[in-house]
Write a protein that binds this DNA or RNA. Structure first.
Lengths: 205, 205
DNA sequence: AAGACTATCTATAACTT
DNA sequence: TAAGTTATAGATAGTCT
C-alpha cells in the first residue's frame, strides 16, 4: 500500500507481522467507528491476535447494552414474573418466558462466581456455544421474525408502558427514558424491516 | 477522503448515507480480511445497517467453528459423560462439567425447535445475554486463564488422546484429524500466551 | 523496539452517465 | 437510481532513529 505494494498473504517475519498488525488494527477500528458514525450503523468487531490477545470495538448502543446488562438483570427478572401481569398473550409464549428465565438464571450463575474455575476445554465449549447461539438468534431475527417485527414492537410498547406505570408507582430506581422513536420519517427502510440491534429496546427490556 | 474532506458525523441525506454505507462497508470488510490474512488474526465483524440489515464477516477458522457446531454437539455430549473417563482431576471441575452439560442441553433445546416461537422481547433478552456471556468468557480467557493455558493444553491433549483411542476402538463416525500442532517453532509468543480462538482445539472438542 | 517520517498505495466523495 | 470515473484524502510499507 505504500512504499511498495504487498501481496495479501501471511507475513513471514514475526516482527514485521506484529508491527503491521498494530498499524492495521488501529486503522480497521477507526474505519469501523467512522462507518458507525456516518451511517448510523451498529457495529461489533472482535479481533484476536495470533498470540491470543483480544481487541474489541462495539458501537455505542451495543456497548451500552452489554455494559448495562448487570443493572438490567433485576428488571428482567421482574419482567418474567407473572405478578407484574406482563405475560404475553399466547400461552406457549408464557411457558417459554419461564423456561428462559430459569435457563438464564442458571447460565448467569454459571458464568459468575464459578467462571474462574472453568478449564480451557470447558471455556472453549462454552464460547462456541454462545457464539453459535448468538448467530442463531441473529439469523432468526433477520429472517423468521422480520414479518412479525412491527406487530411485536407495538405489543412490547404496550407492555413497557404498563411497566413504566408500575415503576412510577413503585420501586423505580433507574430513569426509563424514551422507548421507541416511532417517527415515520425515520422509516425509510428499503429492505422491508426496521429491526435494530440494541435500539428497538433502549431500556434493555 | 477524496474530492473533499468530510466531517465524521451522521450523513443527513438518506440516499448519500446509503451509498456511503455500501462503499465503506465493502472497504471495512476488505480491510478486515486483509488483516486476518496478513497477520494470522481471528476476526469477527458484525454490521447492522440503520435499516436493520445484517452483514457479517468472520475469519475462516471462526467461521468453521460456528458452522461445524451442529456436527460436534454429539461429540460434546460424549465428552461430558463420565463413562468416557474424561473427567478432570479436580472434583469441583467435574461438577462444573455436569452443570455445563445440563445447561447447554437446555440452551440448545431452547434455541432449536422453539426459537421460531420467541417473540421480540425474548429474542432480544437472549441475544443480550449471549453477547454478555461471550464477552465475559473471552475476558476470562484473556486474563485469568492465560497463566493456566499451557498446563491445561497438555492436560486436554492427554484427554484427547484417550478419546481418540476409545473412538478408534468403538463408534467413530467422524474423522478426528490432527489435534494440536505442538511444533515449537510455531510458538513465538511474545506476550506470554499461545491461546487461540478456534485453533487450540481444531476438532472443536 | 517503539515511534516518527514519507513516498506511495488504497479508499472514497463528488461527479458523471 | 444504480454503476462507473476521477481527483483527492487517508492509510500504510519501508525506512530511519
Amino acid at each position: 500500500m505504500t512504499r511498495r505494494k504487498i501481496q495479501i498473504k501471511k507475513i513471514d517475519n514475526t516482527t514485521a507481522r506484529q508491527v503491521t498488525f498494530s498499524k492495521r488494527r488501529r486503522g480497521l477500528f477507526k474505519k469501523a467507528q467512522e462507518l458507525s458514525t456516518l451511517c448510523d450503523a451498529e457495529i461489533a468487531l472482535v479481533v484476536f491476535s495470533a498470540t491470543g490477545k483480544l481487541f474489541e470495538y462495539t458501537s455505542s448502543s451495543v456497548q451500552q447494552v452489554i455494559e448495562r446488562h448487570g443493572l438490567l438483570s433485576s428488571n428482567f427478572d421482574k419482567l418474567n414474573q407473572p405478578s407484574l401481569e406482563l405475560q404475553l398473550e399466547s400461552s406457549t409464549s408464557a411457558a417459554l418466558s419461564k423456561e428462559i428465565a430459569e435457563n438464564t438464571h442458571e447460565l448467569r450463575k454459571l458464568m459468575g462466581e464459578e467462571l474462574q474455575e472453568l478449564n480451557m476445554k470447558e471455556l472453549h465449549e462454552l464460547e462456541k456455544l454462545l457464539a453459535s447461539g448468538l448467530k442463531r438468534v441473529r439469523d432468526a431475527k433477520g429472517s423468521q421474525l422480520m414479518q412479525e417485527n412491527k406487530r411485536l414492537k407495538q405489543m412490547a410498547n404496550q407492555q413497557i408502558q404498563t411497566l413504566e406505570l408500575e415503576l412510577e408507582q413503585g420501586q423505580s430506581s433507574e430513569p426509563i427514558g424514551d422507548f421507541i422513536h416511532s417517527d415515520p420519517s425515520q422509516d425509510h427502510d428499503s429492505s422491508g424491516t426496521s429491526l435494530k440491534l440494541g435500539l428497538a429496546f433502549p431500556n434493555g427490556i
